[in-house]
Simulated assay, not measured.
Amino acid sequence: MASSLATNQSIINVAAICGSLRKGSYNRGLIRSAIELTNQPSLIPDMSINYVDISPLPMLNTDLEKDGKYPPAVDTFRQKILEADCFLFASPEYNYSVTAPLKNAIDWASRPPNVWADKAAAIVSAGGSFGGGRSQYILRQSGVYLDIHFINKPEFFLNAFEDPPKFDEEGNLIDPAAKERLKKVLLALKAFTLRLQSK
């Protein structure tokens, strides 16, 4: 298993992937808030989150694979996934499922060799009344085949449209209770990553 973790207090590198390409996306706001939390070692020590942009990826087409090589954008993306210790998915819900950009990214990184395999992951989502929850179930199903080990609890679904406001006009998370829940997700992801890497 690829890992940057040593026996001492090394940094856990998290690749954060958002299923929305919109700059003001609430789900991107969740990732920004997660990054802010990990930038405070007193809250979450020894964890670094790197946002991985999936917008440059072409739509999956195996005709683009030439002589066993992938297009440059795909190769760069796959390398970032390979080098990560674990993953944080921010998955909005479109039509009871994951978004097309997120599914596309998942499929590109699953091409041989599958660079998702045998690592921990967590999912967060923001949306309507169910907070994007249905997309999480679909993503978990894909994870079974890809050997991604999702944490089971705590779950994080956030109704982005109820009062009081959860996000500001730029899509930044401002709700203290939601930030505390997000912190618990990250701590659980860290603990599960360490468990998997100790095996």
Rank of each mutant, 00 (worst) to 15 (best):
I138E: 14
D147P: 01
E169F: 14
I148D: 11
I81M: 03
G133P: 05
S42T: 14
M47S: 00
K184P: 12
I138V: 14
A34N: 12
Y26G: 05
N8T: 05
I11V: 12
S142L: 15
K166N: 10
N39E: 08
G143Y: 07
G19L: 00
V124H: 07
C86E: 00
S125T: 12
A160I: 09
C18E: 04
A120Q: 08
E65C: 03
S198F: 11
Y96E: 15
L102T: 03
L30A: 07
S20T: 08
I123K: 06
Q9T: 09
I49Y: 00
Q136A: 14
A84T: 10
P101L: 00
I123C: 15
K119M: 05
Q9V: 04
A2Q: 08
K183T: 10
V98S: 09
D53E: 02
A177G: 06
L189E: 01
A120I: 06
P112A: 15
T7D: 08
L146F: 07
G127P: 07
R140A: 13
S48M: 07
A105H: 06
N13S: 06
D175F: 00
K179R: 10
R111L: 05
F89T: 04
I151S: 14
V74N: 02
A109T: 07
Y137N: 12
T38F: 02
N8M: 09
P101E: 03
I174C: 07
A122Y: 05
A117I: 00
S33C: 10
E83S: 08
K183N: 08
E170F: 14
S129L: 12
I81C: 01
Q197A: 11
L88V: 15
F150L: 11
K23R: 02
A109Q: 02
I12D: 08
N159T: 10
V98Y: 05
F192H: 13
S91F: 02
A126E: 06
L21D: 03
D63F: 04
G133K: 09
G127V: 15
G143L: 07
L64Y: 15
D67G: 06
E83C: 07
S135W: 09
I54P: 02
F192W: 15
G68H: 05
K80I: 03
A178W: 02
L37T: 02
A117W: 04
Q136Y: 15
G128Y: 13
N39H: 09
Q40W: 09
R140V: 12
R32F: 11
A177E: 14
S129I: 15
I11G: 01
G127C: 11
N114D: 02
S110Q: 06
G132K: 15
L139R: 04
